[in-house]
Nucleic acid binder design. Structure first.
Lengths: 223, 223
DNA sequence: TAGATTGTTAATCGATTAACAATC
DNA sequence: TAGATTGTTAATCGATTAACAATC
């Protein structure tokens, strides 16, 4: 598969394509053009074709794209069939919510176990996932290669836990804490899910809209 | 405050600035240059100054930026002091996790109440937030202006609930369901928190890194 | 075949970076 | 004052869009 300088923007659009293709499949649609796909996603057909062309030729002239085939290609590009392993650190509310509701296997991940410090949790299972003591984390990491650590610990310990994960060869951290973990030279990839960043962006857009509406009303008033 | 065609990229960086400035404050740092801020965030000083200049002149030549003053400016830009109202729809795992752990007030939001269909939840409180019946949602929306609806319902009902929210004048939806809600002509803003999109992007980056490492190893082997 | 639609090259647009006069 | 650092203008870079030959 060709993979040359793919921009971040393209990569961030791939999961959206995947989601849309799944939706189309659910609706029994097996063929789509870049034009129609663009309509449904609010993108230009050009952009969609450019995006796909980073990875290969998935369409057919005069026909468009075969939905299941394209879906499979994008899934492969995203690494869904690589069988990545994951562990979850911190079985609090968010940790539990993820273990309960988030289907790791649907996206090709194997959630092998979780870690926590609370004695009443250690040794139990949650939705089939065993919970171990944080004391055993280092030993576990040394014996089992972990691709992604889901970080759902309290923010106070986020940096310390991150160091442990990095030192023990975890490939990547999926960070749910509100802490900026991105270290310039760290060998560990970090993907942030910052709830507050998301809400604050929304807050900005709402503010902007209210201001515009108020300005408009003021202009009408003035006349 | 001047507000002319601010790009999406700039807006998405604002919450990061805010977070960093809070961290600096915590560490007792009250003054910073765009150079130093850039170092810490992995951005160029130019970009930081350009970003700020969209909204005004917050620095001082030869000195830099006053941390608390800049923090206050960015908070205002983001609308933190506007007292936006929020309601949460769907008190499942994620809903509970947000009500329990996410400090809405820290970001200027007032979480007034939540809605659910489960009889055992209705009438109770969760972390001080009352839970009402979904049957009363429309009536509530008509009587109380709601700025942001936090959507944490099962995906099956996401679209139906969204329609209700839109029809009853909710300004924006903070969407935690894995459903693409963005409608081209909807008057309701949508901000998505798509866990799976985030994990899949990470999956791509991990795949890429492993491929590179394997390719490197193969080249060494060959020699 | 004719119509449709791809993949790709070229043109445009926008965002980032560099440079520098202004000034604290 | 001299050094530091801003805000802004100009230059560069990269991403998106448009156009079109290729071809199913």
């Amino acid at each position: 598969m060709k993979r040359l300088k793919v921009s971040n923007n393209v990569i961030r659009r791939l999961p959206r394509y995947l989601r849309k293709l799944d939706e189309l499949t659910d609706n029994g649609i097996s063929r789509i053009s870049s034009f129609e796909l663009g309509q449904q996603l609010g993108l230009t057909p050009s952009q969609i074709r450019q995006d796909f062309s980073c990875f290969g030729e998935f369409g057919q002239q005069g026909y468009g794209y075969n939905v299941p085939a394209l879906r499979a290609q994008i899934a492969t590009i995203l690494g869904i069939d690589r069988g990545f392993s994951a562990v979850l650190i911190g079985v609090g509310n968010i940790g539990k919510a993820l273990m309960d509701n988030f289907c790791f296997s649907e996206w090709g991940f194997r959630l092998d176990c979780a870690f926590d410090i609370k004695p009443e949790l250690i040794g139990t299972q949650f939705n089939g996932v065993p919970i171990y003591s944080m004391d055993d984390l280092v030993k576990y990491l040394q014996e089992h290669p972990v691709d992604v650590a889901v970080l759902t610990v309290p923010k106070e310990v986020a940096v310390a836990v991150t160091n442990t994960l990095t030192e023990n060869g975890v490939e990547a951290i999926w960070n749910f804490t509100n802490v900026e973990l991105t270290e310039p030279n760290s060998p560990t990839l970090v993907e942030n899910v910052h709830f507050s960043d998301s809400l604050l962006s929304l807050s900005y857009f709402v503010s902007e809209r209210k201001d515009e509406r108020a300005a408009k009303a003021a202009r009408v008033e003035k006349q």
